[in-house]
Simulated assay, not measured.
Amino acid sequence: MSDKLERYRSKRDADRTPEPIPSSPPSSGDGHAFVIQEHHARSLHWDLRLERDGVLVSWAVPKGLPADPGTNHLAVQTEDHPMEYLTFHGEIPQGEYGGGTMTIWDAGTYEAEKWSDREVKFVLQGKRASGRFVLFQTRGKNWMIHRMGALARDPFPQVEPMLPTERAKPPKDVPAYAFEFAWGGRRLLVPIEGGRTTAAREHPWLRGLARSFGSRTAVLDGELATLGGAEILVFYDLLYDNGHSLLDQPYTVRRAALEALELAGGHWQTAPSWPGEAGPVRQAAREQGLPGIVAKRLDSPYEPGPSKSWLFVPS
């Protein structure tokens, strides 16, 4: 009987990598374990591994498992891995095959409904990954993975930015609003899915932000502003978070979810916000040479286009 781990061993040096490298061929088994590892290698991807005949049959999925039936994701079949990989996590040294950080994203059991050389239909039973999926071969080592069944998340929003209405003075009911700086920059919505964002086509430095989200999905609203001579992306709203649309949620809920992300980097930051502080914020905007402030109603949903729930007040 051929050694199913021969290719796995040929790609690794036990003296250079902490990965498990069994010395003997695997024994046959009939377990039903699975693991999904988040792999920050040369490019971020997720490794799906299903136990089969004593090894973990593996696919690299660049965008992670599809969240809804309307989108298929590429899955590249890789070499079979040893069963010890069910619990492996750690740092594979740079320069070695698969060099980078690997963490366990989810693990559990699965039920195989069909298994052939070109199609694998299965049900995952994990904490983060669950539901019916099918892997089908398209060409060579390239497969696609499809989620079967009902929509597992809210649709990804395709919206225009919410825009403030200009007025000369702050609103009278100051406690009903949060006050932020008007940055005088260019608005930018940043969708993030599978550790990637289309906004990186124009701004390549956003790839680092997208990778930091891992498998978490999001749509961020912000503004490209020049601060201290440097271009900074200032985020002040969150429209979609981890599979759930926040468009109908009040500003206070969206703001709390945004702050929980703790976004801070060399090119981006979370904009400050001060509920009920119109006068001091407006004075600070004047002192910093900013065009004004934006008053945002605490109970307002996100309304694409011009809205009277957001008020721009010149400084």
Rank of each mutant, 00 (worst) to 15 (best):
residue 3 D to Y: 03
residue 4 K to I: 07
residue 7 R to L: 15
residue 7 R to I: 12
residue 12 R to I: 06
residue 12 R to Y: 01
residue 14 A to V: 14
residue 19 E to V: 12
residue 19 E to M: 15
residue 20 P to Q: 05
residue 21 I to L: 06
residue 27 S to R: 14
residue 27 S to T: 13
residue 31 G to S: 14
residue 31 G to R: 15
residue 34 F to W: 06
residue 36 I to V: 11
residue 36 I to P: 10
residue 37 Q to N: 15
residue 37 Q to F: 08
residue 37 Q to E: 14
residue 39 H to Q: 05
residue 42 R to P: 09
residue 44 L to C: 08
residue 45 H to G: 01
residue 47 D to F: 00
residue 48 L to Q: 07
residue 56 L to N: 08
residue 57 V to M: 10
residue 61 V to H: 07
residue 66 P to N: 04
residue 66 P to D: 06
residue 67 A to V: 08
residue 69 P to Y: 03
residue 70 G to Q: 08
residue 73 H to Y: 13
residue 73 H to E: 09
residue 76 V to M: 08
residue 77 Q to P: 01
residue 79 E to R: 01
residue 79 E to N: 09
residue 80 D to A: 14
residue 81 H to K: 02
residue 82 P to G: 01
residue 84 E to A: 14
residue 85 Y to D: 10
residue 86 L to H: 02
residue 90 G to F: 11
residue 94 Q to A: 14
residue 97 Y to L: 02
residue 97 Y to P: 01
residue 97 Y to M: 10
residue 102 M to V: 14
residue 102 M to C: 04
residue 102 M to K: 01
residue 104 I to H: 06
residue 110 Y to R: 11
residue 110 Y to M: 02
residue 112 A to E: 09
residue 112 A to R: 09
residue 114 K to A: 11
residue 115 W to M: 01
residue 115 W to T: 13
residue 120 V to N: 00
residue 120 V to I: 04
residue 125 Q to V: 07
residue 127 K to G: 12
residue 128 R to N: 12
residue 130 S to V: 00
residue 132 R to T: 10
residue 135 L to Y: 05
residue 136 F to I: 04
residue 136 F to H: 07
residue 137 Q to T: 02
residue 138 T to C: 03
residue 142 N to T: 06
residue 155 P to A: 09
residue 156 F to L: 05
residue 161 P to R: 15
residue 162 M to F: 09
residue 168 A to L: 15
residue 168 A to S: 15
residue 169 K to Q: 13
residue 170 P to D: 10
residue 170 P to N: 11
residue 171 P to M: 02
residue 179 F to N: 13
residue 191 P to K: 09
residue 192 I to A: 03
residue 192 I to F: 04
residue 194 G to V: 01
residue 194 G to W: 03
residue 194 G to F: 00
residue 197 T to V: 00
residue 202 E to V: 00
residue 202 E to A: 14
residue 205 W to G: 10
residue 205 W to L: 05
residue 210 A to Y: 00
residue 210 A to H: 00
residue 222 G to H: 03
residue 223 E to D: 12
residue 223 E to G: 07
residue 227 L to V: 13
residue 228 G to Y: 04
residue 228 G to R: 06
residue 228 G to L: 08
residue 229 G to E: 10
residue 230 A to H: 13
residue 230 A to P: 02
residue 233 L to Y: 05
residue 233 L to P: 05
residue 235 F to P: 00
residue 235 F to C: 08
residue 235 F to I: 15
residue 239 L to W: 02
residue 240 Y to G: 02
residue 240 Y to R: 00
residue 241 D to R: 08
residue 242 N to C: 00
residue 243 G to V: 04
residue 244 H to P: 02
residue 247 L to I: 13
residue 249 Q to I: 07
residue 253 V to N: 12
residue 253 V to T: 15
residue 254 R to L: 05
residue 263 L to G: 05
residue 267 H to M: 07
residue 272 P to Q: 05
residue 276 G to T: 04
residue 278 A to Y: 11
residue 279 G to L: 13
residue 279 G to K: 08
residue 281 V to I: 12
residue 283 Q to R: 12
residue 285 A to G: 13
residue 290 L to A: 09
residue 291 P to Y: 00
residue 293 I to M: 08
residue 296 K to H: 13
residue 296 K to V: 09
residue 296 K to D: 11
residue 297 R to W: 11
residue 298 L to S: 15
residue 299 D to W: 06
residue 301 P to S: 07
residue 306 P to N: 00
residue 307 S to E: 03
residue 308 K to G: 09
residue 309 S to D: 10
residue 313 V to C: 14
